[in-house]
Design a protein around this nucleic acid. Sequence first.
DNA 1: CTTGACTATGTCTGTTCTGACATAGTGATG
DNA 2: CATCACTATGTCAGAACAGACATAGTCAAG
Lengths: 188, 188
Amino acid sequence: MISKLGYAILAMLARQPSTGYELSARSRRPIGYFWSARHGQIYPELRKLLDAELVRFSAGPGPGPREKKVYSLTETGLEALHEWVLQDPAPAESGRDELLLKAYSIWTADPAGAQELFAGQVRRHQDRLAEYEADWELVESRHQDGPPPVSDPDFGSYATLRCGIDYECQRIAWLTWMCQQLAGHRPG
Amino acid sequence: MISKLGYAILAMLARQPSTGYELSARSRRPIGYFWSARHGQIYPELRKLLDAELVRFSAGPGPGPREKKVYSLTETGLEALHEWVLQDPAPAESGRDELLLKAYSIWTADPAGAQELFAGQVRRHQDRLAEYEADWELVESRHQDGPPPVSDPDFGSYATLRCGIDYECQRIAWLTWMCQQLAGHRPG
DNA sequence: CTTGACTATGTCTGTTCTGACATAGTGATG
DNA sequence: CATCACTATGTCAGAACAGACATAGTCAAG
């Protein structure tokens, strides 16, 4: 059985053959927007994918004591990705959000301090929104005549960035609303 | 060091003393909206919290071969929660979203099948939105004269539900947009 | 000429989390 | 009368994940 991380790696390799190092960099940005992994997880996973013959690599001299390996998908690997993409995800989708957990217990805290906490989060999400928007414009600049065609890898970026931007806007609005609620309820 | 799950449990116990079983039920709904845990995780965590003297319990006869234990916060436990709530969460916040991972690779798939996938998701999120809204009205009915005061546990529910409702609306809008994109690009 | 950042590969320990196993009483449905 | 869902507590194996350890070359800034 291929893990979700395995599919995340296949998804990245389908776009661009990469080394494990590059995969871990891409798993910070732009893939990190909705998936992340450290290299300590990626190298063992690449080994598993290799054993399952879903990826292959071509080796060359590397900067360190070991060889540099550029991985790419095999035909089986592309098929596995292709099949997985349309499968309905399990309804589990727990979603662990530390800030919401704090918000749930915010009644135990001092409103002024709470306002600070949420104001800080507004800034953090505004920064992220700016990143997403920069990436969005980059993708758009490659397709002046409307959105990218659905068979173009750029359509995947376009779609996920749209979601990310909408999400950040929603979250900023909620955080701002929280600040107002916390301010409004204080005397004065 | 208390884990995030530990704080989630403290947050629940601060509102209502509960058995481990009840905690796992509450961690499906309503806490499950932003945090979840199985009982296989909760019982060992309760033990840790007990050893740290953050919770206590009163035992009585249970339905199974073991005693039923109703847990509640100690003063130290409430203090620990109180302190944690205002701490700025680590910027890690990876966020793993399987559907976005699929969307990212949607260019490898057949648009008609993809549309089905996203349409199914629209239905799922509409159901969840309905749940949130029902809970929202429940909370509002307890506070006809405006929002609950910030020192009321209901304010925590109110705030997190507001976020959940906004999030579901945003996600439904995006999923619908995806369906349109996938439809618009097909010939005919 | 030293320090630090970047490229690049790997391992290892400990924590978190999932899913299954195990036990047992009550009450409802068929 | 059997089967199933619910209440209730726990354990255990294994997967997933974070963070540190380990190695080594290049290149830029101070």
